[in-house]
Each structure stands twice: as structure tokens, then as C-alpha cells.
């Protein structure tokens, strides 16, 4: 079975060693997803797999026949940006921009997780409904590093979109 990336089917005829990240960038030609550490520590390679955020560097492409992947290219376009993309621009949520596609894919999934009622390590009541706060955003985004240190503006951009959706 093919893998579906941003709604388009791709055949998985690759060396089994190919990470999903390398498949996206090399075989599918979608270079929006970035390779940072290649070890699951920085989050630059974050994409949505069947709607959930994952590190695309730590999984093999061949394991994903039949799966659906959304990358930053599938979230929005320059003419019709996703609300998070527009908010990152408005709040200056980046400097060099290398971590930004991963940050935005991660933030998209994070808002969905909160809507689904998933709690985090900093939630007061693990069995209750999570309430969005700066502390919650920082904890939930700890898998995405920004070496320029644009964290305050990243948090502001995400908080704005979260409030608009609430």
C-alpha cells in the first residue's frame, strides 16, 4: 500500500533504512520538514502521522504503508496560511526559521490534544480537563527546541491561536 502525504499517494519503494524524514525530504521532495539532531531530541522533524505528532527521524518509511502524513506544506500555503503560521509571523515566533515547521506541526497537534482532553505532566489534576496556560504550552512544546531562543514569541503565537479557537 502507498503512503499518503498531504493527500497525495507515494510508493514506498525504498531502502528499509530510510527514515520517514529522509523519505519526505528526499523521495517526496517535501523539504519543509527539517533534519536537526536526527535522534528525536530537537523536534525539527515533527510531522503529523494520522493526525498525531511524531518525530519523523525516529521511524522508518517502510513501516508506514497505508498511513497518512501531514507536513508543514500540507497545513497552509503562502496565500492561505494556517492560523498558526499567520500567528508565528505576527508574533515573530522565529529568528532563523529552521525549527519553525516542526514547531508549527507540533503546535497544531498540541491544540488537538488539548481539545481531546489530554492532560500533561504540569496539569494539576491528571484525571481532569486540561486548562491552557503558559506553563502548559511550555511543557507540551518541550519536544521542540529553538536554538535562537524565540520561545516567548512562540508561546505568544500559540496562545493567541488557542484563545481564538476556544
Amino acid at each position: 500500500m502507498p503512503i499518503t502525504i498531504n493527500g497525495v499517494d507515494h510508493e514506498l519503494d525504498v531502502d528499509p533504512r530510510t527514515s520517514l524524514l529522509d523519505f519526505l525530504r528526499g523521495d517526496a521532495g517535501l523539504t519543509g520538514t527539517k533534519k536537526g539532531c536526527d535522534h528525536g531530541q530537537c523536534g525539527a522533524c515533527t510531522v503529523l502521522l494520522n493526525g498525531q505528532r511524531i518525530n519523523s527521524c525516529l521511524t522508518l518509511a517502510v513501516m508506514h504503508d497505508g498511513d497518512s502524513v501531514t507536513t508543514i506544506e500540507g497545513l497552509g500555503t503562502p496565500d492561505a496560511p494556517h492560523p498558526l503560521q499567520a500567528a508565528f509571523v505576527r508574533h515573530d515566533g522565529y529568528q532563523c526559521g529552521y525549527c519553525t515547521p516542526g514547531q508549527i506541526c507540533s503546535a497544531k497537534a498540541m491544540l488537538d490534544e488539548i481539545a481531546a482532553g489530554w492532560t500533561s505532566y504540569v496539569s494539576d489534576d491528571v484525571a481532569g480537563s486540561p486548562k491552557l496556560s503558559e506553563e502548559e504550552i511550555r511543557e507540551r512544546m518541550s519536544g521542540n527546541l529553538c536554538r535562537c531562543g524565540a520561545y516567548s514569541n512562540i508561546v505568544a503565537a500559540i496562545a493567541e491561536v488557542a484563545e481564538a479557537q476556544a
Binding site: T59, S106, A109, T119, S123, V126, R140, G143
Partner: peptide
């Protein structure tokens, strides 16, 4: 798990990141 075994939910949420825990 969250309601009846909260120590397990808390421990899992203390580890790694959302990206890694999804996998």
C-alpha cells in the same frame, strides 16, 4: 488509567515528549 491508576498516567507524562509518547 487517569482515574484509577493515576500514578501510571503521571509517570508516563513525566517521560519524554508528546511526539515520542505518541510513538
Amino acid at each position: 488509567i487517569r482515574g484509577q491508576y493515576p500514578v501510571l498516567a503521571r509517570a508516563i507524562l513525566a517521560g519524554a515528549t508528546f511526539q515520542l509518547r505518541n510513538k
